[in-house]
């Protein structure tokens, strides 16, 4: 069996976001690039099945040249080979999902893991799109999983609103989105890092994979959220101040 893992290189979550002068993107000068944190759970999920299913684990990433670093990290953690799909500028989720799906189909993977969302665009769509293009079922968010005894399917826990958990069963092939809590991702080891150099890393062009498929979402303008307005400070009759706070919680910030 072959297992695919989808990873994305994203700015470290501690990065201060600064927009470019034209407001069409972010300044990358001081950005520290890391593997999307949710993708680490995906890599770990795949690696835990590598032995039991005698699986080859293939890691995919769509991105610019620097995305190689993230693929190397996945290889250092234990993935067997890597495929980088070159896209100089970001594609929308639809095109990204299509390109990845074509590459996955060609690789022969039957089970694909990915992070439930990337912490840069926070969209959480690519896995579902990949699944649809491949005509596979998908659980976009999972925080527990186990493969059935006969290796013919998988049971996952999908968190839903209000703390509810849906226990879902799927056959293979399938796409699974990985959430925090699914596992504890391993560190790559030093020998792993050194060995990763020797592991195969191939490159493909997104335009070759996409054929005629084009993006469907256009990003027009980036902006920064407005500064936190100066807080208000009130005093007086307890009944009255409590009411004002309740009104604020209820009507303005809507937490109750």
């Amino acid at each position: 069996m072959k297992i695919g893992v989808l990873v994305k290189q994203v700015p470290d979550t501690a990065t201060k976001i600064v927009l470019t002068a034209n407001g069409r993107g972010i300044e990358e000068g001081n950005v520290k690039w890391v593997m999307n944190p949710y993708d680490e759970y995906a890599v770990e999920a795949a690696l835990r099945l590598q032995g039991p299913l005698s699986a080859e684990v293939v890691v995919f990433s769509l991105g610019p040249a620097r995305a190689v670093e993230t693929l190397r990290m996945a290889l250092a953690m234990g993935c067997d080979r890597a495929v980088r799909i070159h896209a100089e500028t970001p594609l929308d989720a639809f095109a990204t999902g299509n390109a990845l799906a074509v590459a996955i189909a060609a690789s022969g993977c039957e089970l694909v893991f990915g992070g439930k969302q990337a912490v840069d665009d926070d969209a959480g769509q690519v896995l579902q799109i990949v699944a649809e293009v491949l005509h596979w079922p998908v659980v976009s968010v999972a925080n527990q999983l186990h493969v059935h005894a006969g290796n013919d399917g998988i049971t996952v826990h999908r968190p839903a609103a209000g703390g509810v958990t849906e226990v879902v069963e799927l056959g293979f092939p399938a796409v699974i989105g990985c959430d925090k809590g699914l596992n504890t991702p391993r560190y790559p080891s030093l020998p792993g890092i050194m060995k990763a150099k020797q592991k195969p890393l191939t490159e493909q062009q997104s335009r070759d994979l996409l054929g005629g498929v084009s993006p469907h979402v256009v990003l027009q303008q980036f902006s920064l959220p407005p500064d936190r307005p100066a807080g208000r400070k009130i005093t007086g009759d307890p009944e009255n101040v409590a009411q004002q706070l309740v009104d604020w919680l209820h009507n303005e910030i809507k937490v109750i």
Partner: peptide, 29 residues
């Protein structure tokens, strides 16, 4: 035109679906 937070709300982006239909999911509440 939809405005959505990115980078955990550290930035916002205005975007448009050019395909048809235009499909937009809105954060509850």
């Amino acid at each position: 035109v939809a405005r959505r937070p990115i980078y955990a709300g550290k930035a916002l982006v205005d975007c448009v679906v050019t395909g048809s239909p235009q499909m937009i999911g809105i954060r509850p509440n």
